[in-house]
Design a protein around this nucleic acid. Structure first.
Length: 546
RNA sequence: GCGCCCGUAGCUCAGUAGGAUAGAGCAACAGACUUCUAAUCUGUGGGUCAGGGGUUCGAAUCCCUUCGGGCGCGCCA
């Protein structure tokens, strides 16, 4: 509906351009006002235009409204400082409903006008330990965003970058060996670089079964690293799957080295004259771009830095020629953004195609007290622990009802409660309730209509619900524009609110008025489809009974 | 010290290309189940949008500044 209104207004704007000179297109809003007296739809176009033309907004609104050719509305008001409020007439309403009913599946799955190829990288946790809760937040946002973008018709490729090379992996191997020695009764001393926590015991005790000699050597460390890495990666994959997150690919950093991409990338940068040598190391002139310091690519000892392979990774991504790249990173990596953007630009790619979302920290609470320690991991609370305790649905929904850039307090007790703070049940309950009504209707011998007919609906609540239904595609487009899946979560909560209120005020099944019953049941079917689709885009199930 | 993010009701949070009287849920209080699921609904109270200044017809939203909280500033990954 919004797009129809936009078309009408845009034609009018074109007209105005012949008299006044202004740039086009301009951004303005069409919204469903909170107050009924402001109409069914409302736009601020005159207010926006007044700024550009330096004219009284109400005057402009008059220009736009005067001889507006449209029989869709019974009234068009100019209100307040210059809002234009549209009131739909009955014919339009009916027409909207007919359109909606005739092809609801197309409506449920709106397509973006421009199909894009989108590459999204998220989680990308080091395979040196189990995932923690913060990874879960990134995973949620990444997977929901991917679902929605794919639904809108984009080609979406989801990737997890595995940092399976470098010092931290060596440390993992070393930690496993030390733990193994300890299990065999040896006294060992752990250094500060070593990983601790219970999970190492699991790995080490498996490792012992495969080796006879625990004498420390480069070869053994390698074997242990590889061994541990493989097990941990399996945990990660399984945890993610249980959390409703899957990837198209896990890209190994080690493989980038093995295939020579990293060396090739450094050579390319040398060729472009954006690196230099100093103090025996190779540096990237990132200060020529966005960075405040130059960065080392090859250390004095000949090792490449993590940054070097990360550049190679991004080069590889950009060679694939996607239209948009999304990276979801923990907020503690924000200092890393300028150097990566610098590298992409330096290599001749458009760094603006890379959109980095910083996901803020998750602080865990139990009974209002902060939780930081975990036996399992040694120092952080794992995704698995919380997932097992509170369940996938409440956990996902809690993450998805927050904007990614605001820090999140996650109270385990509150999220577990089935009646209070977590609105996921509220939304799911809507689905279950509708399901129950449909069941009862069938039991009473009322046929579920195969043709959707909404013509008998005339209550205010029904009109409101239908208007909200119409907003569903707009919400998905907003998510696409802002890259903010939480907008969908809030839409679902609002829809459920309107529904529950309607449910309590009116009865759907009325044997004395089968036509009305039919219309209401039709509406329920549509509502049910929207809620199910919305929840599934967020990676949340719709249980038939609760 | 420098940089990024955050600060909205008692609590957890929405409010996004500046717009109309700043909204939900929880908690508090008062009500609604002989009915299609009460995990629900109806109503009441609750605000210096951290403070101050600026930009303009208009600021929670943009700019400056102060204060508070988080995070980052390696030839670590």
């Amino acid at each position: 509906m919004k797009s129809i209104l936009k078309d009408i207004i845009n034609i009018k704007l074109e007209d105005l351009r012949s008299t006044y000179d202004f740039e086009y297109p301009i951004f303005y809003e069409i919204e469903i006002p909170k107050k009924k007296e402001f109409g069914d739809y409302s736009t601020n176009v005159a207010l926006i235009l007044s700024k550009i033309l330096k004219k009284n907004p109400r005057e402009i609104a008059n220009l736009i409204v005067s001889d507006l050719k449209s029989d869709l509305f019974c009234k068009i008001d100019i209100a307040g400082p210059g809002f234009i409020n549209f009131f739909l007439n009955h014919v339009t309403m009916k027409k909207m409903l007919e359109d909606l009913s005739s092809d609801f599946d197309t409506f449920l799955s709106p397509k973006s006008p421009k199909r894009r190829r989108i590459f999204i990288e998220y989680v990308s946790a080091n395979p040196t330990g189990p995932l923690h809760v913060g990874h879960g937040r990134g995973a949620c946002i990444g997977s929901s965003l991917s679902n929605i973008l794919r639904e809108l018709g984009h080609e979406v490729y989801e990737e997890f970058y595995v940092n399976d090379a470098g010092t931290q992996i060596k440390n993992l191997g070393l930690s496993i060996i030390l733990k193994a020695k300890e299990l065999k009764g040896e006294r060992v001393e752990y250094t500060n670089d070593c990983y601790r926590g219970e999970y190492l015991t699991d790995i080490a005790s498996e490792f012992i079964k495969n080796v006879d000699n625990l004498e420390l050597s480069d070869d053994l460390v390698n074997r242990a690293s590889l061994f541990g890495k493989r097990i941990i990666l399996n945990w990660i994959v399984r945890d993610l799957e249980d959390f409703g997150v899957t990837f198209d690919n896990f890209q190994s950093e080690l493989e980038l080295y093995k295939k020579g991409y990293v060396d090739e990338c450094i050579r390319e940068m040398q060729k472009r004259g954006i690196v230099y040598e100093k103090d025996g190391a190779v540096w990237f002139k990132s200060t020529e771009f966005y960075d405040d310091k130059d960065r080392v690519l090859v250390k004095e000892n000949g090792d490449k830095t993590y940054f070097a392979s990360d550049i190679a990774y991004h080069k590889l991504k950009f060679e694939k020629g996607y239209d948009l790249y999304i990276n979801i990173w923990g907020a503690d990596h924000h200092g890393y953004v300028p150097r990566v953007k610098s590298a992409i630009k330096a290599l001749g790619y458009d760094e603006n195609k890379l959109n980095i979302l910083m996901v803020q920290m998750v602080s865990l609470y139990r009974d209002k007290k902060p939780v930081t320690m975990s036996k399992r991991s040694g120092d952080f609370v794992t995704l698995r622990e919380v997932l097992d305790e509170v369940g996938k649905e409440p956990m996902r929904f809690t993450f998805l009802t927050r904007k990614h850039d605001s820090p999140l307090d996650f109270d385990i007790d509150l999220v577990k409660q089935k009646t209070s703070d977590n609105p996921v049940f509220y939304v799911q309950y809507m689905f279950a309730r509708i399901n129950s009504v449909l069941k009862v209707a069938t039991e009473r011998g009322i046929k579920i209509p195969d043709k959707i007919r909404l013509n008998k609906l005339c209550l205010e609540e029904e009109k409101e619900l239908i208007k909200q239904l119409f907003a569903f595609p707009d919400v998905l487009f907003d998510v696409e524009y802002f890259l903010e899946p939480h907008l969908l979560a809030y839409y679902l909560i609002n829809l459920a609110q309107t529904f529950h209120s309607y449910y309590n005020a009116h009865r759907f099944i009325n044997e004395n008025d089968l036509e009305l019953t039919n219309s209401r049941i039709s509406l329920l079917i549509l509502l049910q489809k929207v809620i199910k689709k919305g929840l599934s885009l967020l990676g949340i199930d719709s249980p038939e009974r609760m």
